[in-house]
Simulated scan of single mutants.
Amino acid sequence: MKMNPWTLSVLLLLAGPLGADPGWHVEYPDSFCVVEGSTATIPCSFTHPAGLRVERVVWCPNHKFCSGTTPNVYDSSNVRADSRFLYLGDRVRNCTLKIIKTVKQDAATYRFRFETNGNKYNKYTGRKGVRVNVTNGEVVKVRSSVTDNVVKEGGQVTLTCTSACSFHQLDVHWYRNGHVLSETGPALHLSYLTNDDAGDYTCSLDSSWQKTSAPWSLVVVEDEEKSGWRVTVSVVSVLLAVILLLAGLVFAKRRHAQKKASEVIQKQEVDRKQEAVGASDEVSYATVHFKPSSSRSAPGPEHETVYSEVVR
């Protein structure tokens, strides 16, 4: 049976590349919803037979083939500046697409198409597509893995940003007491809690705070066992300090007494030396002044005679 070229082209597009090679494939989720004003990421991957090189990739809304002049949101051969649709993939296996600050008009079924080198039939579109729903009335909430807001010090808690819309692949920002946290994503894991972790936690679906949850308050309390242990340690520390202080006083008093005794001994030694010096001086003096003279002789007759003559 003969078939005109136009009919053959349509069948090839519907069936994929010539021969329906299973190596041609595009994988993405069936659908998910996005809160208006938030940023969403459509995960996507693709494969093709070995030996081919991808030359063009295209994302388009609401079209089964993304072929020809079909309106698209991304075309690697004609990249538009300042587009809210950011291609995060490559030309090897990754075809992920990011939608920034979604609007109502972004609700659509998106499909990915890639074209390779070789003949004109070496191209493929993931016809299943992924349905993106955009909603705007959901209340964003913070849910906790614990039953109440009180957690013991050293414990852990997981906070989840929830809404009627799934947050799969959504950009979620977290805040504590109004200050932005470095963690992002639908879940916030807090472990080894301290009093510094206490406060009001909120989540937002965009950095403008247009879709922000009500605050969820976390209270961190001391563990009684750890608190009792700290009290015991404190008491022991105080007792040790008192013992060290008393020992220091006793040691200082003993040193003072030893110093006084040493001073007394030194003074007594000096006194003994001074007494010894004085006694030596007295002995020398007596020897000099009271020693009898061996050259003295008795008066002779001549002296007596002269004396008698003078008396007359």
Score class of each variant (00 low, 15 high):
82 D>C: 09
96 T>S: 14
80 R>N: 11
147 T>D: 13
160 T>Y: 07
85 F>E: 12
142 V>I: 14
192 Y>L: 09
106 D>V: 07
163 S>Q: 04
117 N>T: 15
97 L>M: 14
57 V>D: 02
62 N>H: 05
150 V>A: 11
55 E>P: 01
159 L>A: 05
157 V>H: 08
94 N>H: 14
166 S>Q: 10
68 G>P: 04
111 R>T: 07
89 G>N: 08
124 Y>Q: 10
162 T>E: 15
185 G>W: 05
94 N>T: 14
49 P>R: 10
55 E>N: 08
162 T>W: 05
103 V>I: 12
119 N>R: 15
187 A>M: 10
75 D>Y: 00
145 S>D: 02
68 G>K: 07
57 V>Y: 01
75 D>E: 00
70 T>V: 14
129 G>K: 02
121 Y>M: 12
133 N>I: 09
61 P>Y: 03
111 R>A: 06
163 S>K: 01
66 C>I: 05
194 T>R: 14
124 Y>R: 10
126 G>N: 04
171 D>R: 13
185 G>V: 00
158 T>G: 01
195 N>F: 14
179 H>W: 05
133 N>P: 01
190 L>F: 06
121 Y>Q: 06
98 K>C: 03
192 Y>I: 00
57 V>H: 02
62 N>K: 05
75 D>G: 00
165 C>E: 09
137 G>T: 11
137 G>K: 08
181 L>R: 10
147 T>H: 09
82 D>A: 14
105 Q>S: 15
102 T>L: 03
118 G>C: 10
138 E>N: 06
140 V>C: 10
161 C>T: 03
130 V>Y: 09
133 N>F: 14
175 Y>D: 07
82 D>Q: 09
187 A>C: 03
64 K>L: 12
145 S>V: 03
134 V>A: 07
130 V>S: 15
162 T>F: 04
72 N>Q: 12
87 Y>E: 06
161 C>V: 02
141 K>S: 11
150 V>H: 13
158 T>L: 04
